[in-house]
Amino acid sequence: MWICPKCSTSVEPSFEICWSCGTTVDGVEDPTFVTADNASPIKDPSDNLRKSKESSVEPELPEPPLELVECYRARDSAEAKFLMDRLAEIGIMALANGTHMGNTEYMLPLFSPRIEVRAEDYARARGLVDEFELRKKARLAGVENL
């Protein structure tokens, strides 16, 4: 700490001038010094940038909602999860509606989870689902033949 030679204020050693009056440790006064109480607010430069962007750019419209289409009705939540994982592996995001009402106790198609994909991914998703159904039928046929 050092004591200001002009106003006798204790000043931290990291300061070169007195925060109260603007005098150096050697007693030299800064004629441009203004106390924080008397200074005008410092303007945020990002305010000007924000204002210029707002005035020159057209407002962005929200994205249209995704059009989701049903591509498969799963037997249960586990089958829905399995197919959603397979779809994700080939880059198709899917969601399953109705998994909270899984039909592990009741085999009602009314409550079967519906797997939905974006409309533009439907053809690719259906290809994977068709292959899954063929393998499922072959597996069931193999079990019946035992």
Rank of each mutant, 00 (worst) to 15 (best):
K43M: 09
L49P: 06
I42S: 12
I92C: 02
E89L: 11
L68S: 00
W19Y: 12
L66S: 15
Y106D: 13
Y72L: 00
S46E: 03
N103V: 12
G98W: 06
E89Y: 13
P65I: 07
G102W: 05
Y122F: 09
D30M: 01
S46P: 07
D121A: 00
A78Q: 09
T35S: 15
G27P: 04
S52R: 15
E89M: 15
P65M: 14
A96C: 04
D85M: 14
E89R: 12
K53F: 07
P5G: 03
Y106W: 03
R118H: 09
I17R: 03
E105L: 11
Y106S: 15
G142S: 10
V57R: 08
E116M: 14
T32I: 09
V28C: 06
E12L: 06
R114S: 10
C7D: 10
E89A: 15
E120A: 04
F82H: 15
A74E: 04
V129K: 00
R114A: 05
A80H: 00
D37G: 07
R86A: 06
A36M: 13
A125W: 01
G102T: 09
L146E: 12
V57P: 03
E133A: 12
A36Y: 11
V25L: 12
F111C: 10
D76A: 02
F15S: 09
E133H: 04
N38W: 08
I90A: 04
R126V: 10
T99R: 14
E133P: 01
E70V: 05
P59L: 08
G102H: 11
K43A: 06
N48D: 14
S56I: 15
D121C: 01
R114P: 04
R114D: 05
P109L: 11
L83E: 00
T104W: 10
A36R: 08
R139T: 13
D130H: 08
L140A: 15
